[in-house]
Amino acid sequence: MILKTLGRILAIAIIQSASAQNASAGAFDRALELALKNQTTQALAILNELDTKKQIAADLLHLTRARIYFQTEKLDAALEEYNQIPERSAFWLTSIDEKAQALGRKGRYADVIATLQTAMAPMFADRVSPEIYFTAALTNLKICDYATVFKVTEKFKTQMKPRIDTLQTEVASNKPNLQLHGRNGLKEIDGVINKLQVIEAEVIERISLTKKNDNRLEQGQIASGSDVMKFKVNDEVWLDELGKYQAQVKECPTLNVSGKKITKKRASI
């Protein structure tokens, strides 16, 4: 009798839990719909409520909130949300890619380069979005580091060629899902190639017109002190180093309206 009662209680708890999860999933889908319709305030309200109920995975909530903030140009809030996604999350690599784009929008090019160093590590070559190479190339173009633009495109070629072969094999298969995955993948890579071609054309034009100028403002800082350990970046990547990069870069030479180059240092805050 007692066992039967306990069994009933357990069954009710499971059903209620499943219902609650279905309700949360429905609310999450509703939030996504609202965000796509630019009704971001309501979408965020639903997500915040789901966060308090703890029935949607925290990393998924942070990623979705970050994307909504990114959509509404609240980049600082977006970055805060991206930073909440832990390294063990399945969305961590995606968050790095999108975080780099948010940092680029804010003009924090040194941080973009440091962030993408992780995304472009060899162990992620087969799963990272090809878009990161475009972000890296664009960022290096914005700081007039033309040599690194070519390095990025070379790396893109090396990493993407095997992936293209795999995707073409999927397209040639007789499974509709694989075919769709293959076509979408090839389309994405093709789009990035087009964008990289535009960047390279810009680089070629600038190279032909630019003279060497070492008087450039610096951006970014590499921490030092007895509490930190610094290592050189090389081809060997240790897992504990991922996400621990810092960069210091020189921006493009700036011109005043009279055409003379500005050489004064950036004022410190």
Binding site: A114, I222, Q248, V249
Partner: peptide, 27 residues
């Protein structure tokens, strides 16, 4: 994809123009 990438002379000129940027691992 093979249309990407510069010829050696272009890369050499790009290296000449580019600044020395630093990236380090800081733990």
């Amino acid at each position: 994809i093979d249309t990407l990438g510069g010829n050696p002379e272009l890369v050499r000129r790009a290296k000449y123009l580019s600044p020395t940027n630093k990236t380090e691992i800081v733990q």
